[in-house]
Amino acid sequence: MLKLEDVLRAALIEEETGWNMGSFGAIAEFHHVQGDPAPVPQEDLAQVTSRGGVRIDRLKGVIPVAYETLSPKPHRWTQAVSLCLPQEQAAMAQRDVLTELGADVGALRQEDRKAVLFDMGLAQFQVDFCIRTADSALLEILRANDGRSLFDHDNPAMGAILKAHPHRVALTRLGRVEVYQLIGGPDTGGASPEGPHTHVLPKLLKARRTHSANAPIPEGLVPCCGLHPENPVIGRLGEEKAFEQPAFDRFQTLLQAWGPEAYLAGKNSAWAGLEAGILAQNAEEPDTRVGRAGWRNGIRQWRLLQGDSALLSDWAITFDRDSDQADPENPRH
């Protein structure tokens, strides 16, 4: 039986594993950058680099949900483990205006604990999405606009934030992710920097959703932290890579222990049908959304595990055709 703490400790020193905390529209991510010093074990469940860090403060009541999602590219898939809490335990402050919170005494690094934390006021259910700064000029602007929405058209605070690049801190009931790198935008050539970074997408924030509809989180649970173990077909920057069976096998162990039953049943059913040589016209795909995702990813994975064939191509043409279950591909989101 898998022990969650052991899985997390191992993942925290795995360079290929990414982490995030946030919601659908506001997310802070922590990833190791190739060439940086290798992560080392910490006394607590944490990892910190010069670019950012993650810490998990609570395991009590956590329900892990492992899952695979469909990629728009028919030979790939994404995978993750969401650390979830029951909805009533996951709620954060949900402030909708910029709010000063005081010194960040819980910061990952000692040198950041006197800097001032501000809730950005994004009103997301399971995350208080914050910025942290000791910059006197930025503090003056933030304090002058405390209690106002950052999205007010005449509020200068958002522009000052984008110019000053303060630390971003995502707080959930399970812990925090901190990002020290520049905010993606004009100063970074329009792209997020490699490694730890954040996304705040106002259009998605309006939906007030805790997660993507394609993440099979059981009803009544809310994802408060995500980990993304090494993907067997996608590199850490989203590039193609040759299929890595060990990485595939490692995640299948997590999926078998913590994956949705309907997904596992769908994938196993597809594999059984292909193993038996059943023609696509005689095969019956699952009748649930989650089951169909497992069925379709099962077809994709069978090609890598067993090789191509006329039978498999017929299955792929028949069943792996819909785009409604695929998110825009980002292996770390």
Rank of each mutant, 00 (worst) to 15 (best):
A66C: 10
P156A: 10
P86A: 04
V65E: 09
A160R: 09
R109P: 02
P86Y: 06
A66R: 02
G189S: 11
Q124V: 03
W77Q: 09
L138I: 09
E140R: 13
L101I: 04
Q110P: 02
I161N: 08
P74R: 12
Q94M: 14
V105N: 03
I63D: 01
F151G: 03
G189F: 12
D146R: 15
L139R: 14
V127G: 02
I141S: 03
I161E: 11
Q79N: 06
H167Q: 15
D154F: 09
A91P: 00
D187M: 05
L171T: 12
Q79T: 04
C130R: 01
M92N: 01
A144K: 04
S71W: 01
N145K: 08
R95P: 05
L138A: 08
V105E: 08
Q89F: 00
G159A: 12
V81M: 07
E68F: 05
A164P: 06
P166V: 13
L174V: 13
L98Q: 11
R132T: 07
Q126R: 15
A191D: 15
Y67M: 06
T133L: 00
L162D: 07
T69K: 02
E100K: 08
Q126V: 04
A90Q: 00
Q79S: 04
I183E: 05
I131S: 03
M92F: 05
G102M: 09
G189R: 03
T172S: 14
D104N: 14
K163A: 14
R143K: 15
P64S: 09
A66E: 08
E100G: 12
D152I: 13
A80F: 09
E111R: 13
F125A: 08
T78V: 12
G159C: 10
L150G: 11
T188W: 00
E140W: 08
Y67N: 02
P74K: 11
G190K: 07
D112E: 14
C130Q: 10
V97K: 12
V105P: 00
L174Y: 02
L139G: 04
D135H: 03
C130Y: 06
P156K: 07
V62H: 10
L174I: 07
L117E: 05
L101G: 02
H167C: 12
C84E: 02
G102L: 06
H165I: 13
L139H: 07
S82D: 07
A80L: 09
L98M: 11
A157I: 07
V169Q: 15
A123W: 06
L122V: 13
E68P: 00
R173N: 10
D154R: 14
A93K: 04
Q89N: 09
L174N: 11
